[in-house]
Amino acid sequence: MARRPPRWLRLAGWLCLPLMATGGMPVALAADARYAALPGGEFASVLPADGKAAPAQVAPFHLRTTPVTNAEFLAFVTAHPQWQRGRVAGVLADAGYLSHWVGPTALGAAALPQQPVTRVSWFAAQAYCETEGARLPTWYEWEYAAAADATRSDARADPAWRERVLRWYGRPSNTALPAVGGEANVYGVRDLNGLVWEWVDDFNALLVGVDSRDQDGADKLRFCGAGAISMQEKENYATLMRVAMLSALKAANTTNNLGFRCAKPL
């Protein structure tokens, strides 16, 4: 079992870089209809950049308008057999990897083409994004995009925004996932809240550790994100819960409702 993502990512975490290196060469972007442009800027994250109150700086970037679907991921594993179920190395994806598909290269009834792909590891998600000349979004990029609603770039102060997020949390995920393509936010990005959890590039640098109550306790220096546990806005626990979910994961993990989308710089 891979307990941690590759060394370069861990180093990035140690250095507290708000944005991760892409891990690849910059890609010249023809207009890609699957992606929307987001302006970025200063953003009040629930995880302050300095662990206290400093806002995050988000550079302009492109974000996939929808999570990657089963159909898209099927095309990926067909072209890259090393990512097929049964072939992928155990350190890169756990036993649940694509286990709802009927076969290594077939979806079946439990995985409809337009549903978001789930039960994918961080490694597999990252590999997929590279095929789109992209990478996984950073937490700040994802959080920044998800703060928007249909009319505002930051709707988090509106109780209705929080309610919508929480309503999804409050339901067990024992029913079939809807297809991608929910309501677009002000940037034209869909399904950020209310469809699936999504991998982010720096998922394991977010929370101090495994016991959320440590506050500024003994393990503070173990991770770069340590100071961040004293959440900027405790009331905004809807976002905190996503951080908690991501913090529970290891890079090879898969779960029934964890998917991903990709991002790339402008």
Partner: peptide, 11 residues
């Protein structure tokens, strides 16, 4: 035990 039992869904 909390520090040793943080568990993602399906794990």
């Amino acid at each position: 035990g909390a520090a040793s039992s943080f568990t993602a869904p399906g794990h």
